[in-house]
Design a protein around this nucleic acid. Structure first.
Length: 477
DNA sequence: AATCCACAGGAAGATTAGGATA
DNA sequence: TATCCTAATCTTCCTGTGGATT
């Protein structure tokens, strides 16, 4: 991930360089002048060398981690911030520096990054850590052995001196150590055996270990906090080395579900990454765009528009980069040599559509049905859709489809959930004598919702007979 | 000022689904 | 396979409320 990505356009800039291309299918596509210099720079997985507007966070992080270079245990840190606020990038940046700097010091510093959305169980995290340190130890031992062997062959003598005796002993001891480190299998061992293997592997030599748990909230959600409890207490099982844990979380409230002991030991220090504002996003995009795009392909106002859109989405730099990249891709696909603001708008719509589709797809059946009811009322042009109206139609439609009818109370909650997901907009209004209710409107294009609900194979059973919304009013409803 | 609508939304308990365990 | 556990989902019951109407 740290590698500078390859220029992915170099192969297509000159079609004649590859003699195997003879058909006409790709030639047209290849003859289009590419507009990207290096598209990878616009992906959020890329860690840049400079992180604008994150100086203070990086400074704080570094001032805590500097203890590692002195051989002390750095405090555990919890890092909070919404998506796309530069948490992961900043941590990667600082730890990369730390590892590099530590090579000049006596005590090595090893950083292990784990994304808990991918590695999400206690066993797998312990196994992953154990194997990493077994590998590092193996590497270290082999290096020591070859160093000793080299010094032996440099001064050969018929009768080994005392010193050389010791060296030979050392070599055979190291070889023994090498064999004692067996890799932890993907599955099968009892979890506490994996833990003790990890402790043994880490404690093999003096070192400071920094473990970064990205998306730590997902881990706690899926498999509880006892892994965090184990890791945070690991120092008491270590003699020569020490570990420090950095948790990265999107969710500010995730510590509420933690055991108080884990909470206090994990959150010795806290760093908050606030969202970027439009100006800051502008800087970030400008920085990357100059390298990522060919010169002069970005039309006026394109970057400003991207940062403006993303700033509205709680300052998400990831979103801003996605927008810029998608806009570029759309321009490239339609054979345009300039990225204009029109493409940014199209990109915004494309990303939004993808999001809506994804959200709707993962909705539970009942929520889909409530959403469908709102959709029908919207299509019917009901001016003020209220909870009561939604519930009445919902109940009728449910009976019609032989579906369980949920209570009014529950439907209220489902509507609130749809509101939180950004699919509908529900505001509480009071109509005086005529009560207090929620006024509901779709907050995404009607056509998007209709398409995803009705054309998706998975929903067929749910909506059989309701495919044509306009017929629903003419019949019993 | 009192009333009252039509619901919001909190609290607590019941039910259910999914997974672990014996 | 039965049973137990847990978390999510859902119901029941309830109190609260903004402002038009009386």
């Amino acid at each position: 991930m740290d590698d500078i990505p390859k220029n992915n356009t170099q192969y297509i800039s000159n079609p004649n360089s590859n003699p195997s291309i003879t058909g006409g299918l790709f030639e047209n596509l290849l003859s289009v002048e590419p507009i990207f210099n290096n598209k990878e720079l616009l992906r959020h997985s890329f860690t840049p060398d400079t992180l604008p507007h994150r100086d203070s966070q990086i400074q704080t992080l570094a001032s805590i981690l500097v203890a590692a270079l002195r051989g002390d245990t750095p405090s555990n840190i919890l890092i909070y911030g919404k998506t796309g606020t530069g948490k992961t990038a900043s941590v990667n940046f600082v730890t990369r520096e730390l590892e590099q700097t530590s090579t000049h010091y006596d005590i090595p510093c090893d950083v292990k990054f784990i994304n808990c959305e991918v590695v999400d169980t206690k066993y797998r995290i312990l196994a992953e850590l154990a194997n990493t340190f077994i590998e590092k130890n193996t590497e270290y031992i082999l290096k020591q052995i070859s160093k000793l062997e080299a010094s032996l062959t440099n001064s050969p003598s018929t009768f080994p001196t005392n010193d050389q005796h010791l060296q030979l002993e050392e070599i055979s001891k190291l070889k023994g150590d090498l064999n004692s480190f067996a890799k932890v299998p993907m599955t099968g061992w009892p979890t506490d055996t994996v833990y003790s293997t990890l402790v043994k592997a880490v404690d093999y030599r003096e070192r400071v270990v920094v473990i970064i748990l990205d998306e730590i909230d997902k881990l706690v959600e899926k498999s509880g906090d006892d892994i965090l409890y184990n890791l945070s207490r690991m120092n008491s099982d270590l003699d020569r080395s020490c570990v420090s844990i950095k948790g990265i979380s999107n969710d500010l409230t995730f510590t509420d579900h933690l055991d108080p002991r884990v909470k206090s030991s994990l959150g010795e220090e806290e760093i908050i990454f606030p969202p970027y504002d439009a100006h800051q996003l502008n800087d970030i995009l400008q920085n990357r765009a100059t390298i990522a795009f060919k010169e002069g392909v970005l039309g006026p106002g394109v970057i400003r528009m991207c940062s403006g859109f993303a700033a509205r989405e709680h300052g998400d730099a990831r979103r801003a980069l996605d927008l810029l990249r998608t806009a570029g891709e759309l321009a490239e696909r339609s054979g345009d040599s300039e990225v204009t603001t029109d493409y940014v708008e199209a990109a915004q719509e494309k990303i939004e559509l993808d999001r809506v589709i994804e959200v709707i797809r993962t909705l539970p059946d009942q929520s889909k049905f409530v959403l469908f009811t709102i959709l029908v009322l919207t299509a019917k042009d009901v001016s003020h859709i209220t909870t009561g109206e939604v519930y009445n139609l919902y109940r009728q439609l449910c009976k019609n489809q032989e579906l369980d009818v949920l209570t009014h109370r529950r439907v209220t909650d489902l509507i609130s959930e749809l509101d939180m997901l950004g699919i509908v907009n529900a505001i509480v209004v009071s109509k005086g004598r005529y009560g207090r209710t929620k006024q509901i409107t779709l907050s995404v294009p009607q056509a998007h919702v209709e398409k995803e609900l009705l054309s998706n194979q998975r929903n067929q059973r749910l909506f059989t007979g309701l495919e044509d919304i306009s017929i629903i009013f003419q019949s019993q409803f």
